[in-house]
Each structure stands twice: as structure tokens, then as C-alpha cells.
Amino acid sequence: MIPVIEMRQVSFHYQADGRRILTDLTFSLAPGEMLGIYGPSGSGKSTLCLMLCGIIPHSITGVMDGEVRLFGESTRELSPAQIARRVGIVFQNPETQLFLPRLRSELAFAPENLCRPRPEIRQRVAEVSELLQLDGLLAASPNELSGGQQQIAVIASVLSQDPAVFVLDEVTAMLDEANASNILAIIDLLRRQGKTIVMVDHHLPNLSRADKLLVLADGRIKSFGRPGQTD
């Protein structure tokens, strides 16, 4: 079976003479598995996420050694559009992903660009907004939302994209307890639907649901295995 994600001896630094952010990462993830990523701040977690969705190397330059493969193909060879059809990412800072005048437009953006039929787009927007209790905010400008509401909005926009792979970078960091629980329940639902999930979190209990836990330290793999065996 071809792994969904495969990293082969990947190293990266943003500047040629700068500090190395990631060193010699090698791991793989099978279809439907969930990978938790844990480690101190500055250990390279977010950089790893940017590699999994192709932003590195396509949009962010730097020095990357080794190979990242999605469904058996190198992210260097795949176009950003090809990667985006398969991988949805929620950044750590939601403001950087919201750019349309209305929240409804944010949720519709991905299926529109995937050329889904209009009725399907409307249905996706309705389902996702109900799931995340955003019905009352669809007409709002994302700029008017609180930080936590923006985080939920971005999660919603990626859900409406419906990719095979979800990369989630600290998605509950700005949420109150009720919203955080709802998001974790949605992640559990995505797992039951067979989605492949990569989740970064500083709160280790949130990662207990993962099949594998990758612990980073100073850009290197400190441990890799089942949660409880590695942390």
C-alpha cells in the first residue's frame, strides 16, 4: 500500500547560512492514519506542516534536502493545485488564511475552485456552518470575527474543501472549552470517515487519539511510535 505521506531524510533551513529548522526526518503515514506532532516551540512543527501541503518548496524558498511524497509522488514534482486537491491545512494563525469579504465566501471558496456544482457548494457551506455553529456569522466579514471565531472559520473552510488529508496546526489554541471539544469531536468524525490527519498540538492529551506520535526536538525526531509509548 502506498503511504499517503512519506518523508525521506528531509532537512530544511530558511536561509542558506541560517539555522537548520529540520534535520533528517524520515517517517510515513498510511491512508486513514492520524499522526500527532508534539514538541517544544521552535522545534520545527509548523515548518513540517508547510512541507506536507507543498507551501515549502513552492511558495517559501529555502534549502530543502530529502524528499516529501504525497500518495507516492514528490511534492517537488506535484503542482500546488494538485497538492491542494488532496491536502487541506489549517495554519496556526488563522488571520493569514482569511481573505474574502464574507465568511460565506470563505467556506465556498474551495469547492468553487474545485469546480463543484453550485447546489453542492451551497450544501457543503450549509452543512459545515451547521456543524461548527457558524450560521449566524455567514454574512460577517472575517476581519470582524474574534481570534477564536477566525480559527473556527478556517477549520470550516478546510472542511468544505473535503480533502483526503488534513494538516491541523494548533487548531484549538484559541478556542474556549466548548468549541475545543467540538473541534476534537469533528476530528474524531473525520477519522471515522477514513481521512488521513496530521495534527500539531501543545496539549498532549489532545494527541492521545492519534495512531502515531512524532515528537520533535531541535528539528530532529526525538521519538516516533504509538502515543503512550513515546511521550
Binding site: Y14, G18, R19, S41, G42, S43, S46, Q92
Partner: peptide, 18 residues
């Protein structure tokens, strides 16, 4: 200390926070 000469927007979020 190891980031003293780094461009701040290249730091991780946690490093930026500190």
C-alpha cells in the same frame, strides 16, 4: 539567545510570543 540576529517573522509562533 540563538535567535538574536534572526528576522522575527521567521521565528516560530511560540518564539514570537516569547
Amino acid at each position: 539567545g540563538h535567535c538574536a540576529q534572526e528576522f522575527p517573522l521567521n521565528l516560530s509562533r511560540g518564539e514570537q510570543q516569547r
